[in-house]
């Protein structure tokens, strides 16, 4: 039981970075960035390959950089070459499949057997006992959340927020919206890459298919978090929602895995339903209210 809790918490912290990335691209910039799936695997591939070569920490930084580059490719496709944003993400994502294979030495799977990872290095310091993985994952997650929160208060951060909020007004304030989209997608994909990097080193392997559906799961966790702690109220809350939603999701995942209420193969379908329902909820609620009112008032008139 304890092991389940620990796994859920550490995975929740690690995957919260994907939600954080989607918060920046989807919520702040108002762009559906489909680079996420491939970018996650890219981070994982780079970091695990690096660790396999004996450089686990360097691997994290390289993964961040690699993720950021993927974000820039998507951004340039849409801002400089006129590709619609969703297509731009899909194109990058498709291309990344090959890049990811290359990063893993043209194999679809890389495993770490005896090599050091950031987790084994941290365990050897003796801090936290059996909770070491959670402590390290949480520390990185909180650090990233802090960076994001402070960044959005800077002039650059404000400009990015305005780009997603009112693009007309942004160009009227001497801000180049294309540049802001590029910076925003660079940053968000840095976080996605980092998330993949840590996940890879925790499970000591990288797999070419590890990223399938990550973008939907990320959105689901973001929305779950926002609903649970009323996250749309302020930036800080919204950032915290990324973590809260992920931990909840990972607990649900663990319970399903343990109890087999639904077959584990059905989890992706459940995730898709959660996302669809969560995004549709406000719209459905409004139209139901209108219908209800119409029925009542028309009956009263009759």
């Amino acid at each position: 039981m304890l092991h389940i809790v620990q796994t859920a918490l550490s995975l929740g912290c690690i995957y919260s970075l994907v939600a954080l990335a989607l918060f920046l691209s989807y919520r702040v910039l108002d762009i559906a960035d489909l680079t996420t799936d491939g970018c996650f695997v890219l981070g994982m591939a780079v970091s695990v390959s690096s660790a396999a070569a004996g450089h686990p920490i360097m691997g994290l930084f390289l993964a961040i950089l690699a993720g950021g580059c993927a974000g820039i490719v998507t951004a340039l496709l849409q801002t400089r070459l006129g590709v619609p944003s969703i297509i731009a993400g899909i194109i990058t994502n498709t291309g990344l499949y090959t890049i990811n294979l290359m990063a893993m030495g043209w194999s679809s799977n890389v495993s770490l057997i005896k090599q050091e990872t950031i987790f084994t290095m941290f365990r050897n310091t003796g801090i936290g006992g059996s909770w070491y993985a959670i402590i390290l994952a949480a520390a990185i997650s909180f650090f990233c959340m802090f960076i994001m929160r402070e960044f959005l208060k800077t002039r650059l951060g404000l400009s990015i927020r305005a780009t997603g909020d009112n693009r007309d007004m942004v160009s009227a304030s001497s801000i180049n919206p294309k540049f802001m989209i590029t910076v925003g997608l660079f940053m968000s994909n840095c976080f996605t890459g980092l998330s993949g990097a840590i996940a890879g080193q925790l499970q000591k392997s990288a797999d070419i298919n590890a990223g399938t559906g990550i973008v939907v799961i990320g959105l689901a966790t973001l929305i779950i978090g926002e609903t649970v702690i009323n996250g749309r109220k302020s930036i800080s809350r919204n950032i915290l929602a990324c973590l809260v939603g992920n931990i909840i999701y990972r607990f649900i995942y663990a319970i399903v895995l343990q109890t087999r209420i639904i077959p584990i193969e059905g989890l992706k379908l459940m995730t898709a339903i959660i996302v669809a329902a969560a995004i549709a909820a406000p719209y459905v609620r409004t139209s139901l209210e209108i219908q209800k009112r119409a029925r009542r008032e028309l009956r009263d008139d009759a």
């Binding site: 002039r155 404000l158 400009s159 927020r161 305005a162 909020d165 007004m169 942004v170 801000i175």
Partner: peptide, 14 residues
């Protein structure tokens, strides 16, 4: 002319 989800202060800063 203004960004609705940002505060008055943030809009002026932009």
């Amino acid at each position: 002319g203004t960004a609705p989800h940002m505060t008055i202060e943030e809009n002026l800063a932009l």
